[in-house]
């Protein structure tokens, strides 16, 4: 286990450099808490914040400095259709460093599969972003996630696990379409059955239809509480 942790941590810089045209690198903490409001209704609150540490534009030197990119405050109401399927609706308020704060409404359905000793999560999400400074943006997203125990046949409290996910996002705004891809690889730890910690790399590419393909790499670490 220690070897695996060491390899993972040592490989982080290599993962960043391997992308070739790194445009933005930063850290991305997130905190999430979920609790049951009633037998059928669950409330989830989440705060996540993107903080840049280095930015590079084509033909220019790396601009290494700290800057706050954005912070999202999210709230969801979720209900279970059965142990495998959840539906949820949510709202997000985004604080943007440029001052163009925005509101977002979110709808999603999530499907859990248990094919063996690991989990597969499917998330189908639609969201709509409203800002006084821009035209409304509409997005449709699909994310597949794998959660794999690495210490035993199943993930038990006190054990580490790996999470890999990929998300495809289609966006539509002011008659323009965009596509974004997000890949996440994280090392996680489950403690006390209700608490998870994860740390890893979140690598995002977008502007596929534009001449300047954008790469963003975040060191992401999260704390997830579930009551």
């Amino acid at each position: 286990m220690r070897k695996l942790l060491l390899i993972f941590l040592l490989s982080l810089p290599a993962q960043l450099m391997a992308q070739g045209t790194v445009r933005l690198f930063g850290f991305f903490p997130e905190f999430q808490v979920g609790f049951k409001a009633t037998e059928k209704l669950k409330i989830i609150g989440k705060i996540e914040s993107q903080n840049g540490l280095a930015e590079k534009f084509e033909g220019k030197d790396i601009d290494a400095r700290y800057f706050h990119n954005l912070t999202d405050f999210q709230g969801f109401l979720a209900t279970k259709i059965n142990p495998f399927i959840d539906i949820a609706g949510g709202y997000q308020y985004r604080v943007n460093s440029l001052g163009d704060n925005s509101h977002r409404t979110i709808q999603q359905i999530s499907i859990l599969q248990l094919p063996g000793n690991y989990k597969i999560g499917h998330r189908i999400r639609a969201d709509q972003t409203y800002s006084p400074f821009e035209k409304n943006e509409y997005r449709f997203r699909y994310r597949i996630s794998f959660e794999l125990p690495i210490e035993g046949g199943s993930l038990d409290p006190g054990e580490f696990y790996l999470v890999f996910s990929d998300e495809l996002i289609y966006s539509y705004q002011a008659r323009d379409s965009g596509v974004e891809n997000r890949v996440v690889a994280s090392l996680g730890h489950l403690s006390k059955e209700k608490q998870k910690f994860q740390a890893g790399i979140d690598y995002r590419t977008d502007r596929f239809f534009d001449p300047d393909l954008r790469h963003r790499s975040w060191f992401k670490f999260g704390w997830y509480l579930n009551f």
């Binding site: 903490p29 035993g152 409290p157 006190g158 730890h189 006390k192 910690f197 670490f221």
Partner: peptide, 25 residues
């Protein structure tokens, strides 16, 4: 950032001491 990150990893170490039932390779 420098405060929160070490705290997160410290939490990993602290909580990994606790266990009720588990299967380890």
């Amino acid at each position: 950032f420098y405060v929160i990150l070490p705290l997160c990893f410290f939490s990993l170490l602290v909580f990994s001491q606790e266990k009720i039932e588990k299967e380890i390779k």
